[in-house]
Simulated scan of single mutants.
Amino acid sequence: MKFDDIGVGVVGLGGMGQLHANSMHDLGASVVAGADVSPPQRERFGREFGVPTYEDHDDLVADEHVDAVVVTTPNRFHEPIAVAALEAGRDVLVEKPLAHTLESAERIVAAARKADAECMVGFHNRHTAGTTMLTEQHARGRFGPLTHVEANYVRRRGIPGPGSWFTNADLAGGGALIDIGVHALDLSLYVLGFPEVVEVSATTRSTFGGEESYADPDGFGENWSADSGTYDVDDSVSAFIRCADGRTISLEAAWATNREPSSELHVRGTQAGARMEIGGTDLSILETGTVGCDHYADTDLTGDASITGYKQQDREFLACVASGHEPATNTVGEALTVQRVIDAIYRSSETGRAVEVERREHEAAPTIRRESS
């Protein structure tokens, strides 16, 4: 499928905006406009792609050459940009998470349901080689019914610099959970086929952000200064998620904690299990057998390293724009389910007890095709 007649506008011209612009260009679409509040970002983007740039997203949405809008701003601004684009009939790809709060996410979904346009959400790790192999092996019944997913996305030391929008709850909506933990949470729900979540028990922590003596060996936060700006978000979270059908998810996410870093998904089924690195190209399948003698049978699958999650995701988005068909994955309904679980994690931590989660209209329903027995 060719995408050369699709004009893409990017709102938020930092690293993520640049990544998507390059990806869309490589896939054959035309990058036709950019928008950002930062003059240097606008100048750089306009020079690189030879396109007009705007300070206000409304001007980009009104540009007649724009068919689709990619939103890569801080989370708080996802809603006004996505809603404006959808109401103008522009297809939208909004980076994860869907929004900075559950209420804001619900308003985006409402706009998407009314619009004559499609909306996808940027959970790119669904499209990596490792995830593709996992879901296809599961669809073929190799694991049997899945019972539990252990998910972690843990940095030993990796807090974005204090004073950045990542550490400001008003702009981000949360910290490590909503920044990186959301990837592990989304993948867990995705491989389970988005079962109904009924209860969440969780604790979030903010341990390291206020420490002037915080060690940052890799320079992740650049010039660390604990009093350089707002730090009112979590830097780690532990959560246990219970689904209506008895399946469960355990989640660990951290920007900083005193353990080795890891970003893995461990999937347990009745017939076999699997392990993969989030965003990786390989998959390990864990089985047992009795032929000859009782034994373990572990199989390592090596995926195509040229498959990248961002490129595959952007290709799916452009295909939806070109065809006018609803997306088969990365839907706003799924993203709203993820957002509702995030909200429940924060509520559980605030109250110190497990909280109930209710599915609402337009949220993800179980995806039966991935639940082979």
Rank of each mutant, 00 (worst) to 15 (best):
L187Q: 15
R157V: 09
Y214Q: 04
T203R: 15
A172S: 15
G246C: 06
D170T: 07
Q41D: 03
W224T: 12
E211S: 04
I368R: 10
L286H: 13
F317I: 06
S38I: 09
D67H: 12
T73H: 01
S372H: 14
V32I: 11
D179L: 08
G292S: 04
I108G: 01
D282I: 03
R247E: 09
A112Q: 02
A305S: 15
F240N: 14
E48N: 06
G158Q: 07
A33Q: 05
T367N: 14
F166A: 08
R76Q: 14
V191K: 14
L301A: 05
E106R: 09
N125A: 04
A272K: 01
V332H: 03
D26G: 07
L134M: 11
T248L: 07
R156T: 14
A244G: 06
A319P: 07
I368P: 07
D216M: 08
L146C: 00
G34W: 08
W224N: 08
G9C: 06
E264C: 01
K311S: 15
M120P: 05
L301S: 02
V321P: 06
R259G: 13
E136Y: 03
R353S: 09
E350D: 14
E260Y: 01
S213D: 15
N22T: 05
P52S: 00
E222R: 15
K2N: 12
L185H: 09
A322T: 10
D179N: 15
P162C: 01
L93M: 03
F45A: 04
G309A: 10
G246Q: 07
S38W: 01
A172M: 14
E361A: 15
D304W: 02
R42F: 07
V109T: 03
H20W: 03
V121H: 06
G46A: 06
H183P: 09
D234N: 14
A99P: 01
K2E: 14
S348G: 07
E43N: 08
V92A: 00
Y310W: 06
Q18M: 08
H266A: 13
E64R: 12
R370A: 06
E277R: 10
I249N: 12
G144T: 07
S213N: 11
A99F: 00
Y153K: 09
H266D: 11
Y190A: 01
